[in-house]
Simulated assay, not measured.
Amino acid sequence: MKPGSDDINTLSRRDLIRTAGAGALAGVGLAMAGTVTSAQERTGTVDVERHSVEMPFPLNAYVVEGEDGLVVVDATLTNTASRELRARVDGLGKPLRAVLLTHPHPDHYAGLGNLTEGLDIPIVSLASVNDIARRDDAEKDAVISSMFGEEWPRNRVFPNDTVGDGDMLDFGPGLRFTVMDVGPAESFHDSIFVLEGSAPAAFIGDLVYSFMHPYMADNTNPEWKRAIGRLRSELPEDMILHVGHGLPVTPAFLAWQEAYLDRFEAAIKAADWSDPETAQAAVVTDMTAFLPSDKLLFFLEQSILPNARRLGMTR
């Protein structure tokens, strides 16, 4: 990788506070996303390369390049995407020291087998992330294998090294991370890997969706909002947050994510659940008014009924 220049991939605090209201924020963010031409940036003296795929839906993994090695964060979903990620790693000519897994959703762990094929390296996660990924894999396999066919990896592997909150991970110069255990949030258990360096940066999985509709079908939105409150108080305001879906952001964007979750819950409560099909359509209409985009819209659609049941609106 070549040394990066100005960071044009990040939706910054400055960009966010220029606008007022969630709808305006969405319009600005989507316009900015359309101007992005690079997926590489510098974090201190470390290169961070975003491996972004669009099929079957927008999704990121990250390659962090230190002085004499690499660390990858998350592993994508499909055979094609994860093999391309491995080819990208091999092309850099430095050894892959480790893979870090942020949370137990299959679009982040399913490609681990292809990414690490033939390598004896640590695949690192919180113990709970590892346990949940293993626990739910058979259920995910039953659903996703029929959806993606030959693109669904059959050689799935799981973390082989677990860590805890506050642990320090050292994989060589430029590849030092601190673990944050977030607990249940977007998924049944989430974590953050904070990259040490002169510029604060962190890999936060799906704790924020960068102007895309989030997956909320795990039905943990109350815990997610509590996690957002914690992160808003603890993360430096100029930290770059590398997200699982979309462009990097700063912690100011956490307020937008919280507003999305609040709007979603309000839309469910406002719908007429005497006709569940009409009620679900009303929620989609309301949320696409809040965020006028179809990116990951099916995540939203999958999330309505579980949350409606939690809120007591339907059985």
Rank of each mutant, 00 (worst) to 15 (best):
V89E: 04
E41T: 14
F299E: 05
L291P: 12
F177M: 07
S303G: 05
D141Q: 15
A33F: 12
H242R: 10
R232A: 14
D141S: 14
T278G: 06
G183I: 06
G27V: 10
V63N: 15
L92M: 08
P3N: 08
V243Y: 10
V283D: 01
W152F: 15
G246D: 11
D137A: 08
D190S: 02
L296R: 13
A81L: 03
S303I: 02
V243I: 09
H189R: 07
P104C: 03
A142V: 09
N114R: 09
D218E: 07
A142H: 11
Y215F: 07
F57W: 15
R14G: 08
E196Q: 12
N307G: 05
R154F: 14
A281E: 04
L207E: 02
M1G: 12
Q280S: 11
A20S: 15
G312A: 06
A87F: 12
L16M: 09
T35R: 12
E237R: 12
P104I: 09
Q302A: 15
N307K: 00
L96C: 02
D74K: 01
L100A: 05
G229W: 02
E234R: 15
L30H: 11
L169N: 04
D294E: 05
D181M: 10
P292W: 00
L261V: 08
E117I: 07
T19D: 10
P184Y: 05
T76Q: 11
F188A: 07
T37M: 02
P56K: 10
G93N: 09
S198K: 07
W152M: 13
S198I: 06
T162H: 00
L311K: 04
S12M: 09
E151F: 04
I123F: 00
S5Y: 15
R50P: 05
L126V: 04
L96F: 03
P276N: 00
T116R: 00
D161S: 07
D6P: 14
G21S: 14
F171S: 06
D137M: 11
E54T: 14
